[in-house]
């Protein structure tokens, strides 16, 4: 069921001739109820797949925006259990939009890898991206994911040469996430011209759709990436909207979903030669 949800979505988008828009939101940011409302509103705002971050105290690959999002969520008592409950609640109202959980290894080790994959699968999680579990350490997690029909999604990066790519794409499914810049999330800007040949290389090596993320902040940039990649991931720019809304005492859900709409629209029209509005 789960792997096929990701496959079905990418197959449908391919038929439409467009890239997927993938928003990243942090579970429990700024609080559980608001995050649930955002999650529920994402498909209607134009999300084709959804990445849900689960907070970790020491997110070593994240820039300041997602670090702060994790701290907001943890400060408000967010847990991994509550993250799965939020996804289960989302799944009750949406049977089709794939949900990919993204985060760090230690909370899963604490839960137990096999038990976690079982519980995540039951909650309706379709894929896992574990930033600090590279292929060399992924054996037990890959086994657990396989047993529960969850895609273990790998990261390819500007430092992945052809030999390394072979290792990266082993035992993966769903899609491959191409990290468009050497760096942490939300700092450098991705360049579509520089990214394009890498996307093609990763597509060839994996035979899977390629999502591009890290450093995509504006509709213009999202559209440029959507012309060369199969999916466009935006995270830091969205959690920054959460932070700004909290700071200005605005409606967090409305502000985030409005940004999602703008980005999703840009991605939808990107390959029609239309200027994004």
């Amino acid at each position: 069921m789960s792997k096929s949800r990701i496959e079905a979505r990418f197959a449908a988008l391919k038929a439409e001739g467009r890239a997927a828009f993938v928003p990243y939101v942090m579970a429990g940011d700024p609080d559980a109820a608001t995050a649930a409302a955002i999650l529920k509103g994402l498909p209607a705002a134009g999300a084709d797949l959804i990445e849900v971050g689960f907070p970790f105290s020491d997110p070593m690959a994240e820039g300041p925006p997602i670090q702060r999002a994790a701290q907001r969520a943890l400060a408000n008592g967010m847990t991994l259990k509550a993250t799965l409950e939020a996804i289960r609640a989302f799944r009750d109202g949406d049977a089709d939009t794939p949900v990919v959980l993204m985060g760090y290894t230690n909370p899963l080790v604490t839960w137990g890898l096999a038990a976690f994959a079982r519980d995540a699968g039951a909650a309706g999680v379709d894929g896992l991206i574990i930033v600090d579990t590279p292929p060399e350490e992924a054996g037990p997690l890959a086994d657990a994911c396989d047993a529960n029909d969850i895609s273990l999604i790998r990261l390819a990066t500007p430092t992945s040469d052809d030999a390394r790519l072979k290792v990266v794409v082993s035992r993966t499914s769903g899609f491959v996430y191409y990290v468009s810049v050497a760096g942490v999330t939300g700092v450098k800007e991705a360049d579509a011209v520089a990214v394009a040949p890498h996307v093609e290389r990763v597509r060839k090596a994996s035979g899977l759709p390629v999502a591009v993320g890290f450093g995509i902040k504006t509709p213009e940039r999202a559209a440029a990436i959507a012309r060369v990649a199969d999916a466009v991931v935006v995270g830091s720019a969205l959690v920054d909207e959460v932070a700004a809304a909290v700071e200005l005492n605005e409606d967090v859900t409305a502000r985030v979903l409005s940004k999602v709409e703008a980005l999703a629209k840009a991605v939808r029209v990107a390959r029609h030669g239309l200027a994004p509005v």
């Binding site: 070593m60 290894t105 600090d132 590279p134 350490e137 790998r154 430092t159």
Partner: peptide, 20 residues
């Protein structure tokens, strides 16, 4: 060879750093 002392050690780093 995998940098393990029994169960401990290893290389749990983001993919960007693995080649390094």
């Amino acid at each position: 060879a995998r940098g393990r002392f029994g169960d401990y050690g290893g290389q749990y780093v983001p993919e960007t750093l693995m080649p390094l």
